[in-house]
């Protein structure tokens, strides 16, 4: 045996990296699927633009469709791609730390916290437009802290954590409704559309903060890819292997909350992407932990395809993308809960 089964070894000088073959292949395929979905996304709309023309625009060549594709559709696609990737990553971190596929930022109240804070800022007009992502982060972190305070009792018990999280997310949802009824009517209408997770009217000014935060976080993401692997054992085994569990967990959770909040600020709380993407990616890749790149790509793919359908299926009415992710996500969530309950044994 020269290397672990299923891995390839990449050597660059004295450096060596282990590459999970199947995960790498899946990432390439997901990337290709995403590219196709993105081109399709740019083709479709009120007027159809041929794929060849879209590619010309993407290459920056002069085209009569430059305005429709480049100015109208591209920014919205960019927000969808980035937010989807951020939700996928966020879900992967939170699920890893909680060791529970149910524990995703949109189930345990993080996106609802980000949503409540953003709606409050919008309807009461207390914050400038470009500070919304940061207000969203504060809201997300506050919600996470709340879950932590209530759920922590000599360690994080997975099912209590999720139940309390669901409770808090419901409470935050009500709070958001309250803000909506108290605030200015027009702004409230706008906020309502945002709350279903809509990419309608999203542009580069929404994509830019998201892109820059993802860029700044790149080193942290590289760290997380390794950390993710090291916390996949039980606590004692992980510690025996030299992992500083407390720090690693905290780091991953904060990263997950920040990403979910920033994505929420940009695209609204698009439900179930963070819940679905990591599990789909993991099943495809058959890795022993949730694959990061795969989760990001899957998240981006889900949002892109969902928004494509949302724009086209009932045209000229454009539905919020969150409606479509919910159509798939809600039944999955119910299935997960039913399965978890039957596993832990019914009433004895």
């Amino acid at each position: 045996m020269t290397r672990p089964v299923g891995f390839a070894v990449l050597r660059v000088g004295r450096a060596s990296f282990l590459l999970h073959r199947r995960a790498a292949l899946v990432a390439v395929l997901l990337g290709a699927a995403l590219a196709l979905a993105a081109v399709a996304y740019l083709c479709v709309g009120e007027s159809f633009v041929g794929p060849a023309e879209v590619v010309r625009v993407l290459w920056g060549q002069p085209s009569p469709d430059a305005f429709v594709v480049g100015t109208l559709r591209m920014p919205r696609l960019a927000v969808g791609l980035l937010a989807g990737a951020a939700f996928g990553l966020a879900g992967s971190f939170v699920q890893t730390v909680a060791r529970n596929p149910l524990a995703s930022p949109d189930v345990i109240g993080v996106t609802q916290g980000a949503g409540a804070a953003t709606v409050a800022a919008m309807t009461f007009g207390v914050a400038a437009y470009d500070t919304l992502p940061y207000i969203s982060i504060v809201g997300g972190l506050a919600a996470a802290a709340l879950v932590y305070v209530f759920a922590w009792r000599r360690g994080l018990h997975a099912s209590r954590f999720v139940l309390i999280g669901i409770g808090i997310s419901v409470a935050l949802g009500s709070l958001t409704q309250l803000f909506l009824t108290k605030g200015d009517f027009l702004v409230a209408q706008q906020a309502k559309v945002w709350l279903t997770g809509s990419l309608n009217g999203r542009g580069y000014d929404h994509a830019a903060p998201l892109a820059s935060i993802l860029l700044v976080l790149t080193p942290a993401l590289l760290w997380a890819a390794r950390a993710q692997r090291s916390v996949s054992f039980d606590d004692d085994t992980a510690t025996a292997l030299g992992v500083r569990l407390g720090r690693v967990r905290l780091g991953l959770i904060v990263l997950g909350v920040v990403l979910a909040s920033v994505a929420t600020a940009a695209a609204g709380p698009v439900d179930f992407v963070a819940l679905l993407a990591p599990q789909i990616a993991r099943r495809l890749s058959r890795t022993a932990q949730i694959p990061l790149l795969g989760s990001a790509l899957t998240g981006a793919l889900i949002v892109t395809v969902a928004d494509l359908l949302a724009r086209k299926l009932f045209s000229p009415i454009e539905l919020p993308v969150g409606v479509f992710t919910a159509v798939v996500g809600a039944p999955y969530l119910m299935w997960l809960i039913v399965r978890t309950r039957s596993r832990s044994g019914g009433p004895a």
Partner: peptide, 15 residues
């Protein structure tokens, strides 16, 4: 090696 270690789900012996 703890008394009841828990492996990552689906991990192979080699990994």
């Amino acid at each position: 090696l703890p008394q009841t270690p828990v492996p990552p789900e689906g991990i192979t012996v080699s990994e």
